[in-house]
Design a protein around this nucleic acid. Structure first.
Length: 853
RNA sequence: GCGAAAGUGGCGGAAUUGGCAGACGCACCAGACUUAGGAUCUGGCGGAGAAAUCCGUGGGGGUUCAAGUCCCCCCUUUCGCACCA
């Protein structure tokens, strides 16, 4: 295989990653068990290290390299710490780009996707990532997606999957429906500049709202997740406690009151209801529509408002639009005091939140105040601070914690909180309302009018099956799975799912009556695939179940999940939901998928996100070809702390490459000597002591950083310092002043410290210095505190907080000795001349501060 | 508008608990060496100053023997949410 360097010439001693890395890659490729996790009875503690799986675009980008380098360093470290590590990888392989590519290149999506996967797997191997490929998961294969269908049937059976007609988000570019989570500022998550439209369609939904409270409360326990992600999820769920109150329409106001006897408003401040001076309803509200039918002028104004709202949503500044409205001329009755208040239609009322109608209390709500000021509506104060000041606070007055009601009938004098509870109860008892909880979170629409996705395992019986389900919806039995995605399909971007044009797919028989039936032609959202893929990794070849519960229960929860923050409310909320559903189905025991989540920063270049249009894309292949994989990934870890954005500077990669070159030359120089030397410690001279001190300080620093802070940039800096120290003592090592055993310990340990960051080089050096077995299965070095201790310390001496001198003392000197030494220092004495020493502050081992006048 | 994070040399960044600001690396400058390499080695590198020394972590106040770090006010940038009743 590789040639030994024995007596090597200069050229042979030069660090050449282009030679070393492919050599080790070939060896690793030939050993599929190398990174395999042990079975769950290994007796070692488990560690599930997971990075978010990529979409197989065909090319790894720098963001992937960074993400996976972090995970790889951690996985290797945990192996060396003796853990049974599961470190899998897979492919989020369904999705629209495959269809676009099919149109463009006339390649079937499956073929395109699978060849991309092969290319990316090759790239990953070239970089040397430590994945257990035996458990690879590819979501577009029937072995995987049949379980999506299986879960869908389970959810249908438990009422968690249902069909309804509703307003849905439609991306004209994707030609499909999108979930709320996939709409970002009114635009499609795949198309930054495509405005999402609203359509009325019948679609499949998953009842994620059933878990809204648990998803919210569970966030409290996820202490290992970034606060930012938890906050985003909290806001997305948007729980709000309030009260629904029915305002009856006044009969005299118009005909048809019997058809719609009341407007239900939602409020979180029912305690302010005596201050309600109007009702405001959304332009899309059913009552607005009905009034419009009888009033052409109103109809025109309402339509205008709807159009304006739409335009504002599309231009992305919904919040900036001026509040305005129009009076309907009708009145509604406040059930708490019998008062008649005017009904308005206003543009700031959202149809899809709460009940689409509010009571307007100008005195105690900012928007209502603004609106009332504009239209001269009455502003009536009903809440005051509970401490009686001379002056009443200005309006709108919003406090509800230290305030009480006034002018509110029987509730006057009660605190806001008391009144909220009492008035909700009162409404319920008198049947004109009730306390309620609303959420911003909506059920997850999973139907997609696309081809390249999991077929939904439902059929529509042409016989109707009245009484069973509307539209003759019939669930397929488990035995009918998988519903295979046909392969010969003409992809177009128009006219709904291409599956609908395949008679062979659409036409089927009803599993209940045997009569003619039509298959569902929509496919599932790709986020279904990624909601549970990490469970499949624990048992990826299982042909009879999504996974074996015993295996999943051993590995779960994931100990460390690593990925980009862009999934904070997409994948990360869906997969939490899926976990809870699987738990309730009895498949798993954990409540949450991952104990710890780490979101790495973006890789940017010249201050901007890499993009083709900006022309600032740095290709990993390019970097690897020039500097090698070790230098590329080590730079990705060195250039910034992993949670921050990283500005890619090629000169920095070259710097890392030079550093690794120094390590290589130095280690090879002593390799033969190290091979022939047993470990062990004898007497040390000063140089040997200094080397071991730095070595053990470095071990301690890196070990500690791996336990949570993850500042790999400073870990690598520490290794560089260590190497600089070794270079400082090169002469002493050459002369034999440093013992051979110490030289051996230093280089063996250095190699181990490098292993998580520069896998190829570490493997090569480990072999060169005669190490046994795979370097990342060797026990991680343990820092010896005794060796790491400094025996002499430099203590700065300040005068009035400014540095005046530095004294050298034996470590552990007590306060008196430090103080005496500081005062005896000639530089200090000179500067104290003629001044009065007021106070001496001694911080042992840290500094001395002399306060003088 | 609300919320979060951040602001330190020419650049990326370090300083985990208040204790020598600028570790480590890049770029740059000077020199050495040479098989002229995408080398390597030595030294320098926050600002002002000949030096002693002084100034310096977005700005302004404060606490402290001591502040990049803690407190108050303000500015800027990035991200998230954005009429949520």
């Amino acid at each position: 295989m590789s040639e030994q360097v024995a007596g090597g010439s200069e050229t042979q001693q030069r660090y050449n990653p282009a030679e070393i890395e492919p050599k080790w890659q070939a060896r690793w490729d030939a050993d599929p068990g190398l990174y395999a996790a042990d079975r769950h009875d290994s007796g070692r503690p488990k560690f599930y290290c997971l990075e978010m799986l990529p979409y197989p675009s065909g090319q790894l980008h720098m963001g992937h390299v960074r993400n996976y380098s972090i995970g790889d360093a951690l996985a290797r470290f945990m192996w060396m710490q003796g853990y049974n590590v599961l470190h899998p990888m897979g492919w989020d392989a369904f999705g629209l780009p495959a269809e676009n590519a099919a149109l463009k290149n006339n390649t079937p999506p499956r073929e395109w996707t699978l060849s991309n996967i092969a290319a990316m797997r090759k790239q990953m191997a070239r970089i040397g990532f430590s994945y257990d490929w035996a458990n690879e998961v590819t979501t577009c294969l029937p072995e995987y997606y049949r379980w999506n269908q299986w879960f869908f049937l389970k959810m249908f059976e438990h009422g968690l999957a249902y069909r309804k007609k509703s307003k849905v988000n439609w991306c004209p570019d994707c030609q499909t429906v999108l979930a709320n989570e996939q709409v970002i500022n009114g635009r499609c998550w795949r198309h930054d500049d495509t405005l999402v439209e609203q359509k009325d369609l019948t679609q499949w939904f998953l009842r994620i709202t059933q878990y809204a409270d648990e998803l919210l409360n569970g966030l409290e326990k996820l202490e290992g997740w970034p606060e930012k992600v938890r906050t985003m999820q909290r806001n997305w769920i948007g729980r709000s406690e309030g009260t629904l109150v029915d305002f009856a329409l006044e009969d005299a106001a118009g005909a048809g009151a019997d058809q719609c006897p009341a407007i239900t408003v939602f409020t979180t401040r029912v305690d302010t209801i005596f201050g309600a001076t109007s009702i405001q309803i959304a332009p899309e509200h059913a009552v607005a529509k009905r009034f419009s039918e009888q009033d052409a002028v109103l109809a025109g104004q309402v339509d205008k408002m709807i159009a304006e709202q739409k335009a504002a949503r599309e231009s992305g500044d919904v919040g900036a639009i001026e509040k305005h409205g129009v009076s309907t001329g009708r009145l509604a009755i406040n059930p708490f005091n019998g008062e008649r208040v005017p009904i308005w239609v206003a543009n700031y009322i959202l149809a899809d939140y709460g009940s689409g109608a509010i009571m307007s209390v100008p005195a105690h709500d900012e928007r209502d105040f603004e609106f009332a000021a504009k239209y001269g509506l009455e502003v009536r104060r009903v809440i005051v601070p509970d401490v009686h000041g001379e002056e009443l606070p200005p309006l709108p007055y919003l406090d509800e914690d230290a305030s009480v009601l006034m002018n509110s009938g029987a509730w006057s004098g009660q605190s806001c909180r008391e009144a909220q509870a009492a008035m909700g109860k009162h409404a319920k008892e008198n049947k004109f309302g009730e306390p309620t909880v609303t959420y911003r979170l909506k059920d997850w629409g999973v139907s997609r009018q696309r081809y390249w996705g999991t077929p939904i395992p439902m059929v529509y019986c042409r016989n109707g099956h009245q009484g069973v389900e509307a539209d003759g919806v019939v669930a397929l039995p488990e035995s009918a799975l998988p519903v295979l995605l046909p392969e010969q399909v003409e992809i177009t971007q128009q006219g709904g799912s291409p599956l609908g044009r395949l008679a062979g797919f659409v036409d089927t028989t009803c599993p209940v009556c045997g009569g003619p039936a039509r298959r569902e032609t929509d496919t599932m959202d790709t986020f279904v695939d990624s909601s549970w893929y990490f469970y499949r990794y624990t048992d990826a070849k299982n042909a009879t179940a999504p996974f074996d519960s015993a295996k999943a229960n051993y590995w779960f929860p994931i100990d460390q999940y690593i990925g980009g923050v862009e999934h904070a409310i997409l994948h990360l909320i869906y997969s939490r939901f899926w976990t809870k559903v699987m738990r309730d189905l009895g498949l798993i025991e954990n409540d949450e998928p991952a104990t710890r989540l780490f979101t790495q920063g973006m890789v940017i270049k010249d201050g901007a996100k890499m993009s083709k249009s900006k022309g600032n894309v740095v290709s990993p292949d390019d970097m690897i070809a020039r500097y090698g994989a070790d230098s590329t990934r080590m730079y990705a870890l060195f250039a910034a702390p992993p949670d921050r954005d990283l500005d890619w500077q090629e000169e920095g990669v070259a710097g890392i490459s030079r550093f690794l070159g120094r390590v290589y030359r130095l280690t090879i120089k002593y390799a033969e000597q190290i091979r022939g030397t047993a470990t062990g410690r004898g007497k040390q001279g000063a140089a040997g002591q200094a080397l071991l001190r730095k070595l053990h300080q470095t071990i301690a620093k890196i070990t500690q950083d791996f336990s949570g802070r993850w500042h790999f940039n400073t870990c690598i800096a520490a290794i560089m310092e260590l190497v600089n120290t070794i270079l400082d003592h090169e002469a002493a090592m050459d002369s034999g002043e440093v013992s051979a055993a110490t030289v051996a310990e230093v280089f063996r340990t250095l190699t181990l410290l490098l292993a998580p960051f520069a896998a190829f080089l570490a493997a090569e050096l480990w072999e060169q210095i005669g190490g046994e077995g795979a370097v990342f299965r060797v026990a991680w070095p343990v820092a010896d505190a005794e060796l790491a201790r400094e025996n002499e310390v430099e203590i700065p001496v300040q005068i009035n907080g400014k540095l005046a001198s530095v004294i050298k003392l034996a470590a552990g000197s007590d306060e008196e000795i430090i103080k005496a030494a500081a005062l005896a220092d000639p530089r200090i004495q000179a500067r104290l001349e003629g001044r009065t020493l007021v106070k001496v502050i001694v911080v042992p081992a840290k500094l001395v501060n002399l306060v003088v006048k």
